[in-house]
Amino acid sequence: MRIKKTLSPLQRREEVTGYLFLLPSFIGFLVFILIPVAWGLLLAFTDYDGFNPPQFVGVKNFVALFQDDYFYLSLKNNIYYMVVSVAGIMIIGLLLAVFLDKGIRGSGIFRTVLFFPQLTSSIAFGMIMAILFTSRGPINNFLRELGMLNPPRWLTDTQWVMTTITLTSIIKNTGYYMILFLAGLQAVPKDLYEAAALDGAGSWKKFTKITWPMITPTFFLCMVLCIINSFKVFDLVSQMTNGGPANASNVLVYRIYTEAFKFGKFGYASAYGIVLFAIVLLITLVQFRGQKKWVNY
């Protein structure tokens, strides 16, 4: 039997107060997120060109999208970017965090330096990295000094360009996740390590049997965030390559921008947005289902 909860006048007032405090944020969410998302969902079924009244076209945009080579090219690039950047950021971020958690001398400086790219705007960071990666830029000059006669054309070779953007993303974002891992590591009770040391456990044993199980919730959270962010990549692509050469670095969000603002196909771009949302949702759901097997709460 369900018991109806009765509130005292004081509790009711506090509840109203709580809702009132939430109200401004909720209005912002409604106006700037929920309504645009719902509008975007509707637009996906229209031929809206950004100016003329939209006409309902049913699922035509979705049919066209699944026949569009650019969609598969962008999706392939996004998946490559996701796999490599998430793996790179997670592994390097965790290793750096474990290293800095040892409390070695100068770890504060290291932490600041490694976090620093995160404080820089993506546009400025992308611009600087693009200069470093030019054919006659410092990176290739260094490689030539090492004896490499034909260093990669990082930004203009279709075989290399996604790797360049992915590397840039790893450099930019690793520091942020390192800090999250560090927070997770510092929450592991030290007495567990002391007990393990008394039992004769070495560093590797301590990591695999104590550290890793204890930080899996943090690792899971970071992985979910990092994967979602990887599908939202736009700024680095826009700044470093404009999706080129020959669309070799086009990703889904950049394609949405191109379809909407270059070609004025807002309805079609909205269909891209819906499909992107479905892909991210699917991946996140799979992760949440899979977490039960390896995350320890």
Partner: peptide, 19 residues
């Protein structure tokens, strides 16, 4: 606009040695 974009894409591909 779209044809021009496709044209530039393929020109880039050829002139950068990718096709």
């Amino acid at each position: 606009a779209e044809v021009q974009a496709a044209y530039e894409e393929q020109m880039e591909s050829y002139l950068c040695g990718n096709a």
